[in-house]
């Protein structure tokens, strides 16, 4: 039998810690494929966040550090400045990056830090049981918005790529989604550009990946993917918000 599709070598054999149907695994696979295709595996240090992907280093076989909640961009900055030859990825959730770590992320972007950020928007705090995140949609019920997110109480969802694209430091800023094969192929293209931005020393790069949290959304994986298309993407549209010359 001919093998036509397999796990990238850079993905380990370990049992997953993610729930069935969780797209964190898709994001991991895309990163692993790109690191192999771009010959970056042996140069890479991934800064893992506090969130469901806290054990990310179990699954992607590169050098890795585990940051404090929200501090991944600062830690990535320290690694990259001290050792510029390393290829540095900061993998963060929406609570980690857009809430507790927004200052570190914005300033890393403003400085044009030569790091690549993979930013997983699943609309809630998966790890702690589904509380409101800065990305939670208006009306969305979470464990801390039992009556649905209300603008007068909780404000509005945060659009990180749009905000960051207004800065001069980033070389590449985009949003993709992990809900369908077409979108996943596109997400990989965007991530490739983000990694190229770092590889070519052009500046900061970030790709938001619209993800799902079937467990806390209380949906089947299929329903969760449908919800992304019907409810999330209209608020968080896919697109490239900043593309510097040289990332293609």
């Amino acid at each position: 039998m001919k093998l036509i599709y397999k796990k990238p070598d850079t993905i380990t054999e370990r049992d997953t810690t993610y729930c069935p149907g969780c797209p964190h695994g898709i994001a991991h696979r895309l990163i692993a494929e790109l690191l192999e295709e771009m010959d970056l595996v042996k140069k890479t240090v991934i800064v893992w966040p506090v969130g469901c992907s806290v054990f990310g280093y179990y699954f992607i076989a590169t050098d890795a550090v585990e940051a404090a909640h929200g501090r991944a961009c600062a830690m990535a900055t320290g690694i990259k400045r001290a050792h510029p030859e390393s290829f540095v990825i900061s993998y963060q959730g929406d609570g980690d990056l857009a809430s507790i770590g927004i200052a570190e992320a914005v300033h890393a972007a403003a400085r044009g830090e030569r790091i690549s950020v993979v930013y997983i928007n699943n609309g809630n705090y998966g790890m702690t049981g589904g509380q409101m995140a800065p990305t939670t949609l208006i009306g969305q019920v979470t464990t801390t918005t039992p009556y649905g997110r209300k603008p007068e109480l909780n404000g509005f969802p945060m659009h990180v790529p749009e905000m960051f694209a207004a800065l001069d430091g980033p070389a590449y800023i985009a949003r993709a989604a992990l809900d369908s094969p077409q979108h996943i192929i596109q997400a990989k293209k965007f991530l490739r550009k983000a990694f190229t931005a770092q590889k070519n020393n052009l500046g900061f790069s970030l790709v938001e990946l619209i993800s799902a949290c079937p467990t806390n959304w209380k949906m089947t994986p299929v329903e969760a993917m449908e919800r992304i298309r019907k409810q999330v993407l209209p608020v968080f549209p896919i697109g490239e918000f900043k593309v510097a010359k040289g990332v293609e």
Binding site: V45, V47, V65, A67, A68, R71, A74, M75, A76, T77, G78, I79, K80, R81, A82, H83, S86, A103, E104, H107
Partner: peptide, 20 residues
Amino acid sequence: FLQAESEVAAINMVYGAACT
């Protein structure tokens, strides 16, 4: 030399550099 955006960021940059 890098002026961080806060002491919170500074110590985590130190942490990152220390890991190298």
